Simulated assay, not measured.
Amino acid sequence: MLTGIVALIHVYILVLEMFLWTKPRGYKAFGLTPEFAQQTKTLGFNQGLYNGFLAAGLIWGLIAGGDTGFAAKIFFLVCVAVAGIVGALTASRRILYVQTVPAVLALIFVLLGH
């Protein structure tokens, strides 16, 4: 369940970064000015793609089940947690709560449920 929530968070981040970066919702989510958003829209698109890969890996883990699904969930949840830590250190502390905390909680539940 928590792994699915983490995957959905990353699908939402994908949408924000790839499609709403230069829209009012993107400005608000990332604290961007319209000018800066326009100048960096390819950066946002690229970031969104990476978040989509994280979501895809988590969804794969949920669908695959068994040892393969377990391994995929562990790997991608750790990736999300590390990405959140790096984001918190380099961009915004808020990322720690949006990405790392849910990923670590999901990781704990995946490990306890195995």
Rank of each mutant, 00 (worst) to 15 (best):
A91C: 00
I95N: 05
A7W: 13
V86R: 03
F30V: 10
G69A: 15
H10L: 04
G44T: 13
E17T: 10
V80K: 02
A56R: 00
R93E: 00
N46L: 05
P24A: 06
L16W: 06
V6H: 10
F109H: 01
L2N: 09
I63G: 03
T42D: 15
L54T: 06
L58G: 05
F36I: 14
A81K: 03
L16Y: 08
T40H: 13
W60R: 02
A71M: 09
R25W: 11
G26Q: 14
Q47H: 12
G84R: 04
V101P: 05
L16S: 10
T100N: 04
A64L: 13
Y97R: 00
I95P: 01
A7F: 12
L77Q: 07
V82Y: 04
L105E: 02
T68Q: 12
G31V: 12
A106S: 12
V80T: 05
G84K: 03
G61H: 08
H10Q: 07
G113M: 08
F30M: 08
P24M: 02
F75V: 15
V110T: 11
V104Q: 04
V98L: 11
T90A: 01
A55F: 05
I85P: 01
F36S: 11
L32S: 10
V80L: 02
E35S: 07
I95T: 07
I63E: 02
V86Y: 09
A56W: 05
T100R: 06
F70A: 14
R93V: 03
L16P: 09
A37G: 15
G65C: 14
T90V: 08
K41I: 05
T22H: 04
R25C: 00
G48H: 06
G26C: 09
G87M: 04
Y50A: 12
F109R: 00
L111M: 14
L96M: 13
D67I: 07
I85T: 04
L14S: 07
H10S: 02
S92R: 14
A103T: 06
Q38W: 07
N51P: 11
V86P: 00
K28V: 06
K28M: 03
G52P: 12
G57H: 08
T42E: 15
T40I: 10
G4E: 04
L20F: 15
L111V: 15
G31Y: 10
V78Q: 09
T22S: 12
W60G: 07
W60V: 06
A56Y: 03
T22L: 01
A56M: 12
L58R: 07
A83R: 08
N46A: 14
I63L: 14
A7Q: 14
L32R: 09
F53W: 13
T40D: 11
A37K: 14
T3N: 05
G87E: 09
G26Y: 13
T3Q: 06
I85F: 10
G66N: 15
T3Y: 00
N51L: 02
A106E: 10
L49W: 15
N51S: 09
A103L: 08
W21I: 09
G44M: 10
A91K: 00
V86I: 15
T42Y: 14
Y50K: 02
F75W: 08
Y97H: 08
